[in-house]
Nucleic acid binder design. Structure first.
Lengths: 127, 127
DNA sequence: CCGAGTGTTCGATGAAAATCATACACTCGC
DNA sequence: GCGAGTGTATGATTTTCATCGAACACTCGG
């Protein structure tokens, strides 16, 4: 078993060059503070993305790879949806070996859009 | 005072049959409690509709007719947007003479989706 | 009863978004 | 290195949605 080193959270640290062997482009992230309200709402207006967010909220951080979600779309579309979620400041991604693991940016997103995530996550009778 | 009586809904009437004696069809409303989260978010994901909601929030109830809003779309599109807002439980409409006046369903919508309206209404630097 | 003002409906159009299939890039165990 | 596993990029197709113009419906004041 190999662990991901990469110290800890580098929120204020520029990602720069990872000390990993390969040269795989690190995913580009957008902080929730830089996300317009409309973009956040648009990102959460898609059933597939909401399913991803909900499933992600129910798992420990950095434990779910992109392919491990139960959504009825191919992997191309899936990749696209994760890009949208990243751009909306909803998820953070990190490369772990061949797979890309995810984390829901609960605190940061909540600070920027209070209550919005709770709204989407609360199990409702009406979807 | 005479109110719109509208004896019974005649949704399944054959086209062309207008046996009403000159009353306009009352707008069909959806209570926020019957609105899925996704529909609410989708309704608020459009810049024109957000502009309508914001402008409406800044005016007393039942004072704004549909045509009185400053949005860069024709009246056909405008009518469509109001229908969406109605369907999302965001606005209530009432016929007043030749015009249709509006009201933002603040309390009801807030009870169903706490914080969502505040999020959209708060004047943000980032739209 | 007519005409101006107001809003809806309909059909068409254009743009944006979701999706897929394919091809490509990277990592790791063997 | 090879090859399986994983995710991205690209291009094409489909769907969805916002928009418009025109026709229609309703109300009210002359």
């Amino acid at each position: 078993m190999i662990f991901i080193e990469h110290s800890a959270t580098r929120d204020e640290k520029e990602p720069g060059v990872t000390e990993r062997t390969g040269h795989r482009a690190a995913p580009e992230h957008t902080h929730p503070d830089d996300v317009p309200v409309l973009a956040a709402l648009a990102a959460l207006s898609d059933p597939v993305r909401v399913a991803l967010v909900r499933e992600l909220a129910g798992s420990p951080e950095w434990t779910r790879s992109c392919g491990s979600f139960d959504v009825p779309v191919g992997k191309a579309a899936l990749s696209h949806h994760f890009a949208v979620l990243r751009g909306a400041g909803l998820v953070e991604q990190r490369d772990n070996g061949p797979r890309r693991v995810n984390r829901l940016r609960r605190e940061e997103f909540d600070a920027r859009f209070p209550g919005l995530l709770d709204l989407v996550l609360r199990a409702d009778a009406l979807g």
